[in-house]
Every structure is written in structure tokens, then in C-alpha cells.
């Protein structure tokens, strides 16, 4: 207990603060490469949250898929297009203010609707081992076998589609 809070609560607070700060930096930084790097940091913070929630397998998959694969793809595309601060298109101040006001009002409505969630205090029962790869794999390959196979077809279709869209015109 430090200052009346447990270690887990401190970790939650620090990770939340960092995640929100890095997410804001994604939106506000002018250089697209900085945006990508801040988004990677945000994803690491979210992986830390998964660890706090006892979802160890998802934390590892999240780091591998998002920070490892998707963000590298983004970085490659940005470097391919040679985007930097000078080529960055900017909205007018009026548009930015309108976006901020709309987002603020959306936040107001969403937080207002969360007031009813205060009764959601379920008592945790059983073991908290559901995030381990063994238990998750049992569910994935028993109850969700068909969606899993469909996901493989989706990935194949996406791969073929990306190659077809990305290649040069056939003469």
C-alpha cells in the first residue's frame, strides 16, 4: 500500500495516464512518423492493461500483432510515401474546434450513459486463469472452431485482395 492505494491500482493509474497521453499525441503530433511511434507506445500501455486483467495470452498477441506487424506496415507505407511535417495537410482552426467540440459532447453523452454501470459489481468467482493459453485454446477450438476457420478464409481473402489492389496495372 502506497498512499492508500495498492500496487495494482498505481499501475492502473500510471498505465491509463500514459495511454491517454500517448493517444492524444497520436492525434496532435504533426509528423506522421511520430504519430505511428506514439501509437506503438499506446499499444504497449494497452498490453499492460491486458496483463493487469489476467489476459496474458492476449497481451502477448496484442504486442506481436499490433506493435510488431500492423505498426511496421504503417511505418513502411509512410516511409514509402515520404510523408513528413512539410507535406502534412492541416485542417483550418474552425474545423479543428468543431471536431473538438463534437468529441467533447460525445464524451459527455458516453460518460453520462456510464452512470448506470455502477450497479455492475459482479462478484468474481472461480479461478482467474481464463487468460492462459490452455483455457483460451480450449474455448477457441471447441466452441469457436467454425468462426476460427472463417477467420482463416478472411485472412486469405485479405492477402489476395491486398496483392491485387497493390500491384501495377496489367498492360
Amino acid at each position: 500500500m502506497i498512499l492508500g492505494y495498492t500496487i495494482t491500482q498505481w499501475l492502473f493509474g500510471i498505465l491509463s495516464f500514459l495511454a491517454i497521453m500517448f493517444a492524444l499525441m497520436v492525434v496532435f503530433s504533426r509528423n506522421p512518423i511520430n504519430s505511428v511511434l506514439y501509437l506503438v507506445l499506446t499499444f504497449f500501455c494497452i498490453a499492460g492493461h491486458y496483463l493487469l486483467l489476467n489476459a496474458q495470452f492476449l497481451a502477448v498477441v496484442h504486442i506481436v500483432v499490433y506493435s510488431g506487424a500492423i505498426m511496421v506496415l504503417f511505418l513502411f507505407v509512410i516511409m514509402l510515401m515520404n510523408l513528413n511535417e512539410d507535406t502534412e495537410p492541416q485542417r483550418t482552426w474552425l474545423n479543428k474546434i468543431i471536431a473538438a467540440v463534437a468529441g467533447g459532447m460525445l464524451l459527455f453523452v458516453m460518460v453520462g450513459s456510464l452512470k448506470g454501470a455502477e450497479q455492475l459489481q459482479y462478484k468474481q468467482w472461480g479461478s482467474s486463469q481464463i487468460g492462459l493459453i490452455k483455457n483460451l485454446g480450449m474455448v477457441l477450438f471447441k466452441d469457436f472452431l467454425f468462426p476460427f476457420e472463417i477467420a482463416s478464409i478472411l485472412l486469405l481473402a485479405a492477402m489476395v485482395g491486398a496483392i491485387m489492389i497493390g500491384k501495377k496495372e496489367i498492360k
Binding site: V65, A69, I70, F74, L154, L155, A158, M159, A162
Partner: peptide
């Protein structure tokens, strides 16, 4: 992941 692949293409 598949969305990102197609979208970036």
C-alpha cells in the same frame, strides 16, 4: 489485421 492490409494497399 486484414483490414489494415487491404486499407494500406
Amino acid at each position: 489485421a486484414s483490414e489494415v492490409a487491404v486499407g494500406l494497399a
